[in-house]
């Protein structure tokens, strides 16, 4: 799937169209997991709806396999591109299997008869998302994560080359976000589908996505997360916010209120997590020698111990929490 100088927005009758985002020229290859990121209201959902033909582009082209998407018939297109929206479906008496079998709609006859082959595809889609044991449960009784996986299973059963999802990780807790993203990554790599999804979970995306389409006020940027990190591209994401992208840690940081240097000595995971906590509190860790605060973090007899040396007074702590309370003052 690719777009050529696509312009998206809304068209209202008798009025000039409301342009949301211009000059989108991006490309999604086979087997790629692509994340669309950008601020609220920048047009992520509109772009997604335009890509799945729910909205008409204001100008420009969208091509699938080199053919403009409007040249496909409804059924042809529904066999090429699947869609999962943010909408929460709460139809009563609808089982997970029923929901997934909706994905077979473009392939069934006018009565919607499910053949043995369709049943196999539905079952394997359920297995792929790990819902085979919940298949007789009603969709309304599922947790948010389960329901999202059921919606993904439905689009897997639709058997399309391209799958486009609008914020699949919204409403989910952290483990479920990881699960869903991991599932999408699997679908892309093992089943060589093209998967495009929008999200706000930058830190997850940087680890999982093959490519990022970044929508900013200065335009659309695309690239691998790593290239974007090296180019400082992520700073453009929040032009009006104090947050900056820290190239070393791959995290977004808010500039600390004050910078107090200190020296931290230690190794391994205890060093990593202590450093993280101190940085959050606004300390400049190991960047300057002009400091009178020294912290030793180490492991002894299976316990973690922190030793704080401040103005030649030495204190020992058993947790980071206790350490932070003292080191501040």
């Amino acid at each position: 799937m690719e777009t050529e100088s696509l312009v998206i927005g809304f068209r209202k009758s008798n009025r000039s169209p409301y342009v949301l985002f211009t000059d989108i020229s991006v490309k999604a290859g086979k087997g790629e997991l692509i994340a669309i990121i950008g601020q609220n209201g920048i047009g992520k959902s509109t772009l997604i709806k335009t890509l799945v033909r729910l909205l008409k582009p204001l100008s420009g082209k969208i091509l699938v396999g080199g053919t403009p998407i409007n040249d496909y018939s409804r059924t042809e297109f529904s066999r090429l591109v699947g869609y999962v929206s943010t909408e929460i479906i709460k139809v009563g008496n609808l089982t997970v299997t029923d929901m997934v079998s909706f994905g077979r709609f473009p392939y069934t006859n006018w009565l919607g008869r499910i053949t043995n082959k369709d049943t196999e595809i539905i079952l394997s889609a359920l297995e792929m998302v790990g819902l085979q044991n919940l298949r007789h449960k009603n969709i309304a009784e599922l947790s948010d994560g389960e329901r999202q996986r059921a919606m993904i299973a439905r689009s897997v059963a639709q058997d399309t080359e391209i799958l486009i999802l609008d914020e699949p990780t919204a409403f989910l807790d952290l483990p479920n976000r990881h699960d869903v993203l991991h599932l999408l990554g699997d679908l892309a790599r093992k089943h060589s589908k093209t998967i495009i999804f929008s999200t706000h979970d930058l830190s997850l995306v940087i680890n999982e996505a093959d490519k990022i389409w970044m929508m900013t006020e200065t335009g659309m940027f695309q690239g691998t997360p790593e290239d974007m990190a090296l180019n400082n591209s992520f700073d453009r994401l929040f032009p009006h916010s104090a947050a900056t992208f820290d190239i070393e840690s791959g995290r977004f940081l808010f500039p600390p209120e004050f910078h107090r240097p200190l020296k931290l000595i230690g190794e391994g995971k205890v060093l990593f997590w202590t450093c993280k906590a101190l940085e959050r509190k606004g300390f400049l860790v190991n960047e300057s020698d002009k400091t009178d605060i020294i912290i030793h973090a180490f492991e002894e007899n299976g316990k973690f111990i922190w030793k704080l040396t401040k103005n030649d007074v030495v204190e020992e702590f058993n947790s980071i929490c206790e350490l932070l309370q003292k080191v501040d003052f």
Partner: peptide
Amino acid sequence: FGSVKILNTMLLGENYARTLGLN
């Protein structure tokens, strides 16, 4: 009775129905 399939698909709402190829 001839609309069984389309009525079922409409349960998912218009957007899903359209992306499943329904007019």
